[in-house]
């Protein structure tokens, strides 16, 4: 391949990458169209099950039951992992909605420095928590590790409390 062709191909790839980045950026704006019904009905405790979905106690209890064979235990683990993934997807979407509400409050004059810092801190906490759980789930499927979702639930709880408090303070 001649250098001109290589440069042309690189340029096209660069423009496509820029187009993709900006289209993703436009798509992320949708999170700011916050649904009031969602805000009124949202309770973080709906995610309490993630704390024990993959709890070893449950699996130990099931394993101790009469007639529970290896296939059944494997099936249970598989189903629980699928459920956990669905919960995590929902949780991430709700966390993004909460962040969006918080950030709409951060626009000049509507919220203080504390909320700005809190939004960023909780985002870091939630992102690291999510990656930790993904790794733990990979280990769990191989029987190597347990899953602890407390940091993730804590980040969601913390953000909900902070945003609700700011919402009432601003009212």
């Amino acid at each position: 391949m001649s250098s001109l062709a290589l440069i042309a191909a690189t340029t096209v790839a660069m423009l496509l990458a820029l187009g993709w980045l900006f289209s993703r950026l436009v798509a992320t704006r949708k999170v700011f169209d916050v649904d009031l019904a969602w805000w009124e009905s949202f309770r973080p405790d709906r995610y309490a099950p993630v704390l024990r979905l993959l709890s070893p106690k449950d699996f130990a209890y099931i394993a101790a039951l009469q007639g529970c064979d290896r296939g059944m235990r494997a099936e249970l683990r598989r189903n629980r992992v699928i459920l956990m993934r669905a919960y995590l997807r929902e949780m991430a979407a709700d966390f993004d909605r909460l962040q969006a509400i918080g950030q709409l409050m951060v626009t000049p004059g509507k919220a203080g420095q504390e909320l700005r810092e809190e939004l960023f801190r909780q985002k870091v906490r939630f992102t690291t928590g999510m990656w930790r759980i993904r790794l733990q789930m990979a280990g769990f499927r191989l029987g190597l590790s347990q899953v602890d979702a407390s940091a993730l639930v804590g980040a969601l709880d913390g953000l909900t409390v902070r945003v609700r408090a700011q919402s009432y303070a601003a009212a």
Binding site: F32, D33, L36, E40, A171
Partner: peptide, 18 residues
């Protein structure tokens, strides 16, 4: 204007409804 305006449930009416 921002790309998505969004709406915040923080008017007195919203608080009363909650």
């Amino acid at each position: 204007r921002t790309l998505s305006e969004g709406a915040l449930p923080r008017s007195p009416d919203d608080q009363a409804r909650l």
